[in-house]
Each structure stands twice: as C-alpha cells, then as structure tokens.
Design a protein around this nucleic acid. Structure first.
Lengths: 249, 249
DNA sequence: TTAGTATTTGCAATAATTTGCAACAAATGT
DNA sequence: ACATTTGTTGCAAATTATTGCAAATACTAA
C-alpha cells in the first residue's frame, strides 16, 4: 500500500470521526504504530490534521480572538500587572487603556474590588463583565478591528466627560526628553484624552521600551505619576525618571 | 480515549449547561477527578472555559459564550434571520439592536457584504469584527452586564448622531393599538433613539409576541416598515398590520 | 539486469507525558 | 472552631513518543 493511500485513509477517517487512534489505524492500514505516527506527523506538518498524543484530530480553525492572544506574551506583563494592582483602591474611578498589559490587570483584578472602570477596550470590558462590583463605562466610536478598541472623535469626547482618579496607560515608549509616544496616531489621540481626564497616570512599560520613542506624541514624561516595569527599578537607569518626580515599581 | 476527546466532551457540556461538576465528568469520561481537574486547568489556560471550585463554567458570558448560546435556541430566530437578510443591501448604514435575533443576522451576514453597522451590542460587534468590509460604530455608555449592551444617555446621544437606512429592531412585543413595547426601561429608551435615527425600521418578532404588550413604550406600530416573523404571514392575523402599511415577511 | 543510493518500515532502547493515588493544604459550610 | 469538601503536590506505574539502527523496498543509472 502506498503511503499516499494511507494518508487518504487517515484523512477520510477524520472526515467522518472527530478523532483517530494510533492503534486503529495501525491495524486498519497494516503497518506499525511507528509508521502511523510518522504519517500523522507528516500530515500535521502540512496542516491537514492535528497530531495529538495517541492519535490525531481534525485541524481546528485556530483561535484568532483577542482573548486567546493574551496568553502568548504574558511573562513580563504578568509581573507588571501584579505590581500595578496594588495601586488600585476601592471605589476609585479608573481609566483602562486598551493594551494587553491593562488587559492582564483586568484579569488579575480581585473579584470583590469595587471600581468604576472607563475603557475603550472590548477585551477589558468583556473581562470585567464578570466583576459584580465593577461598573463599566464603555467609550463609543469606530471599532478598530485588529486591536479591538474604539477610536475616533466619539471615543475622545466620551473620555472628556470624566475626571478619573487613575489612568492605566498601556505599554508605550517612554523617553525622558521626548515624553511618552505610541506607534498609532488615532490610538495616541485617544490616550492623550484619557490622560487629560485623569488625576494620576500610571504607565505600564516593559524595560526595553524605556528610553525609546515612537512617531506619535502622547504626553510629557512628567505627566506620569508612576512607571510600573517588569524589573526591579534599583538600576541607575531609572534615576532619570526619579528626578522628574515619577515613582517607580 | 484521547485527551482531546475529553476536552471536546467537556466543552460540549458547557455548551449546553451553564456548569459542569468534577464528579459528573469523572464518571462520564471514566477518569479520575484529578485528571478532570487537570483537563479543566488546561482548557482554562487556553481561555476556553473558567475553572471554578468543584467544576467549571463557560469562560464568560462575553462574545464567545453568546455565540455558543445561539446554537441552542435558534429554531425560530434562525428563520427570521434568514428572511431579514435579504433586506440588507450593499453600502447601507444599518443599526443593529442588541437582541439575539439581530445577533443571528450578524452571524448569517455574508462575509463580502459591505455595510456600516451601528450597534450597542458587544456580541454583534464581536461577530462583525471578522467581516472585513463592515465598518462598526459602537455606541458608548454604561455596560449592562447581563445582556452585554451599552445603555444610558451616552448610548442615546451616540445614536442621535446618525441617520441610518435601516434599524433592525430585536424582538419586542407588537400590538396594533399599543404599539411596540419592551420589558426594560433603559433598553427601550435606547431602542427609541435607534428608531428615530433610522429611515426604515424592520422589526424581528416571533409570532407569539404579536398582539402582546409590555411595560415600556418604544414606538407606534405605524413607524415599522416591516415585520419579519418565523411563520408565513398569510394568516388573517396579520391583516391588521398590512392595513397600517407595514410589509410582512 | 545489477550495483548503488535513497527512502521507508519495523524494532528496541530511551525519553517524555499522562494518569491515579496518597498525603497535605486550602476553602467552604455549619 | 470544626468537619467536610475540594485543590495541590510529589510520586510511581502505565502509556505514548522519540531516536538510532538495520532490514526491506523502491528508484537510478550504467
């Protein structure tokens, strides 16, 4: 029997059933389990099925949703989220920026913390929906498809209506001279308004973003009350921000 | 049994029920509770469900959950969605109400149809995110947790800014004398504005809602351009609406 | 054909994963 | 505070994967 025949049979099986076992295929095809394993591996490499322990399953149309994207880059950001959490106090009004860092904070938020959250991020609103004591105010506007936040004048006007205690500003570039900058014009516009509407601004930044700058200006560095990073801010690298009166964590 | 099979079964259960117990799954899958626990943990890491003490629940009543729920109560509403689809034309500006009926329409929408959609419903926005040619304008406001729509003055003001071609009005009660009515005050307020901002109003209604009324007034019956129901509108029961100049489908 | 080469296949040894159990920790309810 | 239920961790047994290798098979070119 040709290898291609076996391939065809394996794929046919997966057309009918939701799974195939190594053992079944081994007897069905009259080859050793090792061979079946190799076949499955080859088919999996072509993306025609998914190899799993003990057999194979049809290749699932992968999750491309924002919620699933979270888990892939949460090493540093998880640390940041943990640290940032301590600054959120009961009954505060908090603006959540739309980045993944702010999202992780939302995910880590204790269920019993009473907050008013203002955001333009679907994922964050979706996460906070589970928090009984969190009031969510969502900014309307044009939906930006890839990052799942609303932007545009409507969003900006929405944020202008508030005076929040804290703004959690997602990862931007921070440069002591050039200030806080971002890679997208419209998102930066919105961020600027978020900042204007908040008493304190807590920036969430991975250390590699410190000292760098991007195309679109958000606010002067001095406007930040605090920078939360994934490293311990003992380094002299951070002194420049301390001199500006910015706390570090 | 493959681990993937167990995963599938667990997720299926959560599609039907709002919860699964460790013990139940343990006997159902013929594995120890420890294994079920580990499975649930793995699925939770992938964001496919939420691990809770004693079992698991669907990850969140967010976009994903909404979509899953659709599958199980789509008998009548699926029919309505199919019928309503034909009235949506390329390049129109359409206001989508937040109900499950409108959601089904969003789901049935051809991927290549170019539309501008204005909505206050998270699930609908989430579904339409995948439609490359659909521009989504989302109404800000206070997030209503159970139905996942925004309401309040902000949402109302947002809708007032537009002049849409069509408003797809989710299931309300329709009574030839008492007009269109709904069960929730704030949602009805929003619906009213949606209608004001639209040239035509297409009401989606299961037949049992016809001739009934609820507490909160939305609009006079004559304001409707069309009523889409799950039955064939040959019955004389529908004549009263025809006399008001309302099309039926 | 025939020798030479590459590929495929099965086998065996070894590595990795999964699973259930048991002891202990944490949480929940009364 | 206590008893009960649920969760966690470490571990050993079972199952499955991987790797190296030799025999079998197919392919190529004189």
């Amino acid at each position: 029997m040709l290898k291609e025949e076996r391939f065809q049979i394996i794929l046919d099986q997966l057309g009918h059933e939701q799974k195939v076992y190594l053992g079944h295929l081994s007897t069905l095809l009259n080859v050793s389990e090792d061979t079946v394993r190799r076949d499955i591996k080859e088919l999996a490499d072509q993306g025609l099925l998914k190899s799993v322990r003990g057999g194979a399953v049809p290749h699932s149309p992968g999750p491309h949703h924002f919620r699933d994207r979270i888990k892939y880059d949460n090493d540093q950001k998880q640390i940041i989220a943990k640290k940032a959490l301590q600054f959120l106090k009961e009954n505060q009004v908090v603006i959540f920026d739309g980045g993944t860092s702010a999202m992780l904070i939302a995910q880590t938020l204790p269920k019993d913390l009473k907050l008013t959250v203002i955001t333009n991020s679907f994922p964050i609103a979706s996460i906070l929906e589970e928090h009984e004591h969190v009031d969510v105010l969502f900014a309307g506007g044009r939906l930006l498809k890839d990052s799942f936040v609303t932007i545009g004048n409507d969003a900006i006007q929405f944020f202008k209506k508030f005076r929040a205690d804290i703004c959690l500003l997602g990862i931007c570039s921070i440069h002591s001279d050039l200030g806080v900058t971002g890679p997208d014009f419209e998102e930066s516009e919105v961020k600027r308004t978020m900042i204007e509407s908040s008493r304190e601004v807590i920036a969430l930044a991975t250390t590699e973003k410190l000292g760098t700058a991007e195309a679109y200006y958000v606010c002067p560095t001095e406007r930040l009350s605090m920078i939360v990073t994934d490293k311990e801010p003992e380094n002299e690298e951070f002194d420049i921000y301390r001199k500006l009166g910015i706390s570090l964590a």
